[in-house]
């Protein structure tokens, strides 16, 4: 539904996606597995500091965010990104499966939560939900 809306409303409007994860594999995996034509991966970052730099450079509409990262963890990074651009939509992708972490991330301004490991389907469903 959500996908259709975005497509329908804006034609081939491109949504810019920034992928933040300290694992190379995970970054490539997300980039490869997401199946939305309107999503354009504009950058990747391996920690919070890099994420902020890339954010300034690329002004993305959506961000996937790992939580446990060296140099500024995901939770802190979420707060900063939301301050910079309140409309940004953030999908947390983390192996941390406890509820308090999830609540904390959502409270800071994340819009979705996906647990690692995930299947391609789970990833795409989470992204679709984020875009709706």
């Amino acid at each position: 539904m959500s996908v259709g809306q975005v497509n329908g409303a804006g034609g081939r409007r491109s949504l810019k996606l920034l992928i933040v994860d300290d694992s190379n594999i995970m970054r490539r995996r997300i980039e490869r597995s997401q199946q939305f034509e309107e999503l354009e991966v504009v950058g990747t970052a391996g920690n919070g500091i890099e994420a902020l730099e890339m954010f300034h450079k690329t002004d993305p509409d959506m961000v996937t965010m790992d939580l446990t990262m060296p140099q500024m963890d995901g939770i802190e990074c979420i707060s900063k990104l939301v301050q910079l651009k309140p409309a940004v939509r953030i999908l947390v992708i983390s192996a941390l499966a406890d509820k308090a972490t999830a609540v904390e991330a959502m409270e800071r301004g994340a819009n979705g939560f996906l647990n690692k490991p995930f299947t391609d389907r789970q990833l795409n469903e989470a992204i679709a939900e984020l875009m709706s």
Binding site: A102, M106, N111, G112, F113, E129
Partner: peptide, 10 residues
């Protein structure tokens, strides 16, 4: 910000 199912899960 969050859908019902997500809220339930967290």
């Amino acid at each position: 910000r969050a859908h019902e199912n997500l809220m339930k899960s967290i």
